[in-house]
């Protein structure tokens, strides 16, 4: 699936929820289900510090694609982190750099991307883009 198709799928999933409670229950469950980042990568180097919650993220480059694993100390953030990973992990640096992440707004969680909240999610999305740019630069050099 393309990044766009994955986002559309998530938006469609969320349209099934009538109540905000159901939506949050689902996100929280996603957070709980997120395969934990390998403890060896849960280091300060991989820590993306937000004012409110922390996110750890590790990126691996395999066969032209970037794969992410991540964790957060806040479970709602973690649920959203798992969605961002579902959307962006396993794509090429170019696809990630060009991706416009609209699904977080579309599912009504835009406050998580507001700089005033300054939590780990916004910084994580920025960090993912930086990784992708870095890998793109590397591949053009070699």
């Amino acid at each position: 699936m393309t990044i766009k198709e994955k986002q559309d799928e998530i938006v469609a999933d969320f349209e099934l929820f009538g109540e905000w409670m159901d939506k949050y229950e689902y996100i929280i469950q996603l957070g709980k289900d997120l395969p934990l980042i390998d403890p060896q990568y849960k280091t300060d180097d991989n820590l993306i510090r937000g004012c409110q919650s922390k996110v750890w993220m590790h990126a691996e480059f395999k066969e032209g694609k970037i794969f992410f694993t991540a964790d957060s100390d806040a479970v709602i953030t973690k649920g959203l982190v798992s969605l961002v990973i579902r959307v962006l992990s396993g794509h090429t640096p170019r696809e990630i750099v060009d991706a416009e992440l609209y699904f977080i707004n579309a599912i009504g969680l835009s406050s998580h991307l507001s700089p005033t909240r300054s939590n780990g999610l916004l910084s994580m999305v920025k960090q993912i883009k930086i990784y992708a740019l870095g890998y793109m630069a590397k591949s053009t050099q070699s």
Binding site: W20, V75, T77, N119
Partner: peptide
């Protein structure tokens, strides 16, 4: 062991 940020968001809703 609830993260304060999580609880704050649920209270906000």
């Amino acid at each position: 062991d609830i993260h304060p940020f999580d609880l704050g968001e649920i209270l906000d809703k």
